[in-house]
Design a protein around this nucleic acid. Structure first.
Length: 496
RNA sequence: GCGAAUAUAGCUCAGUAGGUUAGAGCGCUCGGUUGUGGUCCGAGAGGUCAUGGGUUCGAAUCCCAUUAUUCGCCCCA
């Protein structure tokens, strides 16, 4: 025996055994079916991209999580011999980090693509991240994107497609959270926070669900943002809570001494008054947007435009499968830096982390130095979906492997193959026991372990009369039938 | 990147006042005579106790380092 070598796959990466593949393919089949019905076409791009393609698209954090590939052969020797040897000089390529940037590259590269390129792409991506539950270093994303238009109909289409995928998989209580990059920026401005602090502020707010209001204020203070500004930001981002004078948020702002609190409360009352009581239930999103429009300075055109855009998107989404699931979430902030407009994220109850996310990115294609092409897309995380579906036992009984094992004794291997093929011609999934055994029992035991429904037993007598003995393993009953149509009938009879 | 815990058979785990030959369950192999599995009974194989060093007459057990895994923090699908 040679030295022991670890047989585990690398950390954060997995082997997909046959049963895993069955579940993955089940989900992928639904995804492709829905996406193609929405008019999306498939695309695949290389595992490896040049670092120049990848770097600078995902923000600083993202750049650090890239898997980088060393130069090869002579150029590696040259890189090592150079004066300044670092991660940056030793690598020139990397594994793709997502599917959006490769799409942007492809869109910039091929002028022959349709003006409105609707593509879906289901491939693995790699991130040199710390693995955890539902979090891997190699994982599949299922992306849909539409390039070439700023029309909000595109937003509605990608959200509708994603919602329909989730519905067809059996999810009913998911939420598509919706926000807007420009709105986030407007809220930060309105709170009196320096735009340079935007990134750090959003990171802190993103933790709201985890650490609570007080926690966010503390976190923001640690990052050099004063309590009052922090409070104002929270007031804007959680304005729904402002409508309730008894909410935690109200107490917090009062404690901090937020100057706007009184005026904001009044705006809230007036925003609510435009809607009937019934409408407040059904049109919560529109009401919140109307409220936010009052909270932001009227002169902030970018902010007001963002509110208007979101209102339109929500109006359009009402006519798609996403309509009932969309929820305007002003504190939603997504990490990737390339988003420019609407941003989305999918949440399901009792699962930390999202099933997917997306948004509009109008400047990404232009970063390749060609003309700007606007785009919007949505990405589903396949493993997240699988984790949740497994937890909730949402999979049907997926058949995998053969349904018949040919067991034999006292006959030639030629006879075994003859019968095996005859059974396969009936459309059955058939495996033949490959080795000669002394005991038939060993073969039946193997059949049991395989999980096949039937054993097809042949011996000299069966070969003689061109028949086969079919044994139904769960019931133990068996019949000897002639090869051919009689097999189908016997299988149906024994299965029932 | 920081903190904590864990590492014994293919799998799940027992096993400390340091003491012969390291155990169990499951799984695996063989047997309980002819062409019938699951249950039952019997037998067997399988471990340099993560790796390297130290303390000791003696280490799976105590100490140190390394590696890997898991869980928090950070960030994300």
């Amino acid at each position: 025996m040679s030295r022991k070598i670890s047989t585990k796959p690398p950390s954060g990466m997995r082997d997909f055994l046959p049963a895993d593949i069955a579940r993955r393919e089940f989900v992928i089949a639904k995804v492709t079916e829905v996406y193609s019905r929405y008019g999306f076409v498939p695309l695949e791009t290389p595992t490896i991209e040049n670092l120049s393609t990848l770097l600078g698209k995902y923000g600083e954090e993202g750049d650090q999580l890239l898997y980088r590939l060393l130069h090869r052969r002579d150029s590696l020797a040259r890189a090592l011999a150079a004066d300044d040897v670092s991660e940056a000089t030793l690598a020139d390529q990397g594994l793709r980090y997502d599917l959006t940037v490769p799409l942007a590259r492809v869109t910039a590269q091929y002028s022959t693509l349709p003006k409105f390129f609707k593509r879906y792409q289901i491939q693995p991506v790699w991130r040199a991240d710390r693995p955890g539950k539902g979090r891997f270093r190699e994982f599949y994303q299922c992306d849909v994107d539409i390039t070439g238009t700023t029309s909000l109909l595109a937003e509605a289409e990608v959200c509708g497609a994603v919602a329909e995928v989730l519905q067809s998989l059996g999810f009913d209580n998911f939420t598509i959270r919706l926000n807007h990059r420009a709105l986030l920026r407007a809220m930060i401005r309105a709170a009196g926070i320096d735009v340079a602090q935007e990134g750090t502020a959003l990171v802190a707010v993103d933790k709201l669900d985890k650490i609570g209001l007080e926690g966010v204020v503390k976190e923001l203070e640690q990052r050099g943002i004063e309590a009052e500004q922090a409070g104002s930001l929270l007031g804007l981002m959680c304005c729904e809570d402002l409508l309730d004078p008894k909410s935690e948020l109200h107490k917090l702002l009062a404690k901090i001494g937020c100057r706007n609190l009184m005026q904001w409360t009044v705006s809230g009352i007036s925003a609510v008054s435009d809607f009937s009581e019934e409408e407040l239930e059904t049109r919560r999103n529109e009401m919140l947007l109307a409220y936010l429009a009052r909270l932001l300075p009227q002169g902030d055109e970018a902010g007001q435009a963002a509110v208007k855009e979101l209102t339109e998107v929500i109006g359009l989404l009402a006519h798609t499968p996403a309509g009932a699931h969309v929820s305007f979430s002003p504190h939603l902030a997504r990490g990737l830096s390339y988003y420019t407009g609407a941003i989305f994220e999918i949440a399901v109850p009792d699962f930390g982390g999202s099933l997917g996310g997306g948004g509009r990115y109008d400047n990404l294609v232009g970063m390749f130095g060609k003309k700007d092409i606007p785009a919007v897309g949505f990405s589903l995380g396949l493993e997240r979906i699988l984790v949740v579906m497994e937890d909730r036992k949402m999979f049907p009984d997926l058949k995998v492997g053969p349904e018949v094992l040919v067991c034999w004794k006292g006959v030639s291997q030629q006879d075994v193959l003859k019968v095996t093929h005859a059974l396969r011609r009936s459309g059955l999934r058939v495996e033949a026991y490959p080795e000669k055994t002394r005991k038939l029992g060993a073969q039946l035991k193997y059949a049991d372990g395989l999980g096949v429904a039937f054993a097809a037993i042949i011996g000299p007598e069966e070969v003689e009369q061109g028949s086969v003995t079919l044994k139904h393993l769960t019931s133990g009953t068996q019949e000897r039938v002639a090869l051919g149509d009689a097999v189908d009938e016997a299988i149906a009879r024994l299965s029932s």
